[in-house]
Every structure is written in C-alpha cells, then in structure tokens.
Design a protein around this nucleic acid. Structure first.
Lengths: 332, 332
DNA sequence: AATGTTTGTGTAATCGTGTGCACAGCAGGG
DNA sequence: CCCTGCTGTGCACACGATTACACAAACATT
C-alpha cells in the first residue's frame, strides 16, 4: 500500500521486483493462462503492495478491444431518458464495460463529438438521441455497428435497432378521452425537427383520424417544463382546445400547471392532458399523469441483448420491437 | 467516403497510400509540427477519402494523456445531480475531453468500479458521490489527484476540493420559519450513512440551537419521492411536527404531497417544508419549494477551474468554497 | 531407461502513434 | 565557393501490455 508514488508502475518494473519476466506478469492477471499458482500468488501480492494494475489503454491497443461503450444521448438531466440511462449504465458496469457519454443537447457539432468518440475504438455504440441520423451514425462508427433506438424498422444491414411502437396505446388513450366528451385536440411537440416526435404525433393523429377527427392545433416546445407551461397557455386560450397530447411527461406537467393556474381549468373534467415516456415523476401523487409509457426495464434488456449479440458476433441485422402501454392517471 | 470497410485503416497503411512515411501522417494531424503544407493537404485529403482518423488509444498510450475524465456520481437519474452533470459534460466536451460515468448507486462494489476506471489512465477524476471516502479516492487514483466535492475543507495534499457551505442560508431559513410561528422541527435525512447528510443537518441544527431549539424528530429516507412521502406521514402524524427540513428537494416534494393528501395540512400555513439542492423542478409552479440552493453554474465553473489548474500543473492543494443561498417558495 | 506429454517461463513480435535524431535540399551572406 | 540556418521527411524507438513460439523441467507411459 505504498501508493504514494506519483507515477504508475509498469509491468516490466513489477517483473523486476518479482523476479520474473513481464510476460509472466501479464499471465498472472489473465484468468485462464498457464502459470504456476505459486508464481501467480506471489506476483499478485507484490502487485498489491506496489499498487500495480495493468494499463487498460495498452491492453486495449493490443486486444483490439477497449471495453468502452459510447452512449449518444440528448441530455443527461432530462428525466425522460435519465431512468433508462441509469439502468443501462448499471448493466454495463456489471459487465465491466465503461460508458462514455456523448451529449447532443448542446448543438455544438454533434458529429465532431461522435467522431472524437469513435477514435477511442469503442466496442459498442448506443444511439438514444433522435438528433443524429442513422446514416451519420453508420458513417462515423462504420467499424462498430451502432445500436439505434428507433421508432420504425430500419432495414439497414449495418445497424441493429430497437423499434418502439405506441400506436395501439395511443388509440386506447384517444378512445378514452373522446368517451369523456373532449372534442378539440392539440399536439404539443417537443421539437420541430425530430422524426421521433413526428412518429409519436402520427400515432395519435391516426387514432383521431380513425374517428373522423384531427388535431386542431399544434405547438412546439423544447421538452422542458417551462415550454410546456407557456405553450399550453396559448393552446388553451387562443385555440380553445380541451385536450392536449404532449411530447413528453415533463411538458405535460407544465401544461397541467398552466391550465390550473393561468386558465383556471382542471384535469380531467375541463381538459385532458396526456404525457409520453412514463417517467417515475409522472406517477407521483402531485402529478398522477396519464401517459403513453414504455417499460424501461424491458427497453434496457433489449439494448443489452443486442450488445450481447454483437459480442457473440451473431451476424445479420438485428431488430427488437417493444410496444408502449397506456398508464392511466387523473389527468385524462 | 468509401467507409464500407469493416476494419479501421492504420497510419502505416495510409502512409503507403499517400506515398509518405507514417511519421508524416502523424505530423499531418498534429497542428504544430514541421510539415509542408502541400503534403499535409494531400494527406488530409487521402485520409478523408479512406475514413482515417488517428487511433486515440494508441495516441493515449504514447502521449501518457488519455483525455478521459472519470465522473464518480451516485446516480444519473437523480435530478439533484443531473443538472450539474449535464453542465459539466458540456464543458468537458467543449474541451475535447470525454467523460466516463461511474455510478455508485447500485452498491455493487464501488471501489472495484473505480479501480477499473483508474486502469484507463483517466486524466482527471471528479468525485460527486458522498458514498466514496476521500481516502479511497486518493488510494485508487493516486496518480491522478482527484477533485472532490466536499462540505468541509480537506487538508489532504493529494486532492483538490470544492467546499460547499450552507450554514448562513440555513440560518435565514430557520429564522423565517420561526417568525412564522412554527415550533416543532423534524429533519428528514436522505441516508443514514452519508457525511454530507450529517453536515447539512448540522447547518440547520446549529441555527436551531442558536435560538434555543432542537430537532424533535429525525427520519431517514433514500432521497426518493416515495421515501419523502412515507416518512413525512410518520413525522406529521406520530411526532406532530410543524416543520420538516428535507435532505433534498425531491423528498421535500414527496413530503409536501403527503401533508396535503394524507394529513390534510397545507404549506406554508399549517406546516413548513424545506428542500435542499435547488433543482429546477423545485421552482416549477406546482412545487414552488423553499429550498437551500446552490448556484449550479458557479459550481461547475469551480470544477472546471480545478481541472484547468491540474492541466497547468499548478502545484499545491486547491480548494474553492461556494456558499448556498435560500431560495424562497411558498412552502415555508 | 527411453520417449511422449504436460507445465511453467522467457524471448520477441505486435498493437498504432508520437517524436528525437539524422539528413538532404535549399536559401542567403560573406 | 564555403559556411550557416532553416525546412521537410524518414528511421527507429518508445509507450505498456498480450501472445505465439520455443524450450527446459517435471511428470507420465511403455
């Protein structure tokens, strides 16, 4: 435990200390290699004494395997993703894989950021963000076969994908709201550029169309509470809608607050408000949101499953489909 | 753009293609090295054509500089930390540094996890988690000089620290609550093992003591909404307190909901509820929490400042102190 | 006792870059 | 014409580990 040394000790130096060659040091740290158990024990003892650990960078260079995983996300703080990120990081850590977070929210060149990460020879890439196109991911990580979270089946040979389908659940929700007597629907998007947002909106639009209705208004926020609050005021006041489908749960909570405080209308009697994602906060007593929800555990299970297939070098395109469910609260 | 190749091209191969030596390739990618500008342009063109990027792993091995930063956090989903994490990741990315997240919440051997990360020769370590002791951090990252977020000055030569002081703000808050006529205080801890929690409690306990009072009850949660809810019911019902200081904002929101829904008491008239952290959600209209808050931007500025000092190899122990402020809402 | 097999260790090459050193070419000054 | 100085490039080694190969010793088999 004489770990006061500023510099890290190398395998060659440890070899000298233990009276063996550096190859033997390496073997002492590789579980299944031919080495005398007495030698191994002695080496591990000396290693512990001098605080030696094999250098993972050098090991990666030789192995062609870095045990790093790039996670491309929109943001970290964003609760919609945070729960899943947390789960995934746990699962990776359990497999001795280290996550590198690439955060796209700040729009400062996302592609450059991904290129930087790709130079670190990451073993896997998981793209959660809808701000990066599949083609960009494939081009930049052409050596890694990205895992992409998607809302439609991807036919591309060089990616694996997780497809999420909420059409049915959206239909259930719309059905309930209409039976409750609401007539004028609005959609509050999280962004105006994302294809995920477009698809989610389509689920609900299709459900409306099936019943001869359509969205009477559409607004654009930025997935934040404040934007949900602000846009809801406009929708309720100007467009006189009585049902708002929001792009995520956080905006839905903002919209609910706006309705209650600014307009003086309450859910679910006066108006209906629906979220999407099914974050834990949505189920809190003070929120109790009706939301189009995804099973986070199943979702991350799917990601891990794909990572395992890549590790096992199973060939061919891989795609897993998950379906959303409606989670009922008191807001719709 | 013929990036269909499965394997990544190396500098030596590119050298052959460009009719130069691999050393020249390397120089083409190093901004300040002696190389003819014509040669550089040609090399960069060929490199782009073949999708070549220098291998950061090999570069790190040679440089003794990985440009990786380990962030040791409790959890990712936790809103208390998420905002800061998000900020810090942005700042790191702007400096071309890649963050590796180490998540301690899952108690599966935190130390082993840190040891794993340390083998990747990270350039910096930032410890946000109060679940890892300073000594452990120093032992494991003895080559890296960790940056530790702390609540008391650390005299240790081998760490830099950010100290957070909330004594004054706690005093203000207690003062206000007492002037409002509340008399029986409870403290709702986030955990029973963390020294951060103990210190935060001390700020408020000292403020009470100054006025001849003390906490009449103490409960232990786990920083979650649900635990705040559950424990608050007990505190209000069994211990009949009329003011609850919570270990973080999320528990405070849970406590507020419990008071309102289960006990039928409202803030701030019947009872006072105080949070800590000053997360964005606390300011939402539906919450409007009184909270002991820290300026997140200043906080991350301090972290980045310490990272820069380490990069500049400024010697000596570094410590930056930040003070919390009271953020007033309608709950106390 | 001779031969084959297993075990444990050392030697040296390799992974992909960065860089000190040497050197060739070229310009300019005397 | 010689000497000095600068520019651009290649050679070779270093970074710290892994691993195929070789080989000695120990052990097993006939």
């Amino acid at each position: 435990m004489s770990g006061m040394s500023r510099r890290r000790i190398t395998s060659k130096e440890l070899a000298k200390l233990a009276g063996v060659s550096s190859a033997t040091i390496s073997r002492a740290f590789s579980p299944d290699s031919r080495i005398g158990s007495a030698t191994r024990d002695r080496i591990l003892a000396v290693a512990r004494e001098h605080g030696y650990q094999p250098n993972a960078i050098a090991r990666s260079l030789n192995n062609q395997r870095s045990r790093l995983v790039a996670l491309v996300v929109n943001a970290i703080g964003n609760p919609c993703e945070a729960e899943e990120q947390q789960l995934l990081v746990h699962r990776l850590q359990a497999r001795q894989l280290l996550p590198i977070i690439l955060c796209c929210a700040d729009h400062s060149d996302r592609l450059q950021l991904m290129r930087l990460a790709s130079t670190y020879q990451v073993d896997h890439v998981v793209v959660f963000s809808d701000m990066v196109s599949m083609q960009d991911a494939v081009d930049i990580f052409h050596t890694t076969k990205p895992i992409i979270v998607s809302f439609e089946p991807l036919e591309n040979e060089s990616v694996s994908s997780i497809r999420i389908d909420g059409a049915e659940a959206a239909d259930e929700i719309i059905d309930k709201i209409i039976r409750d007597g609401k007539k004028r629907f609005a959609y509050l998007s999280g962004t105006n550029s994302s294809w995920i947002d477009k698809l989610r909106r389509k689920w609900f639009a299709d459900a409306l169309a099936k019943r001869g209705l359509a969205f009477e208004a559409q607004a654009f926020g930025d997935y934040s509470y404040d934007s949900g609050f602000k846009e809801a005021v406009l929708l309720l006041h100007r467009d006189k809608v009585d049902a708002i489908i929001c792009g995520n749960d956080v905006m839905a909570i903002g919209a609910r607050d706006a309705a209650r405080r600014v307009i003086g209308k309450n859910t679910p009697d006066d108006i209906a408000i629906v979220g999407q994602d099914g974050i834990a906060m949505a189920a809190w007593d003070c929120n109790d949101l009706t939301t189009l929800s995804l099973d986070h555990v199943a979702f991350i299970d799917a990601v891990v499953e794909l990572i395992e297939r890549h590790d096992a070098e199973v060939e061919g395109p891989h795609s897993i489909t998950l379906t959303c469910t409606a989670r009922w609260g008191s807001t719709a």
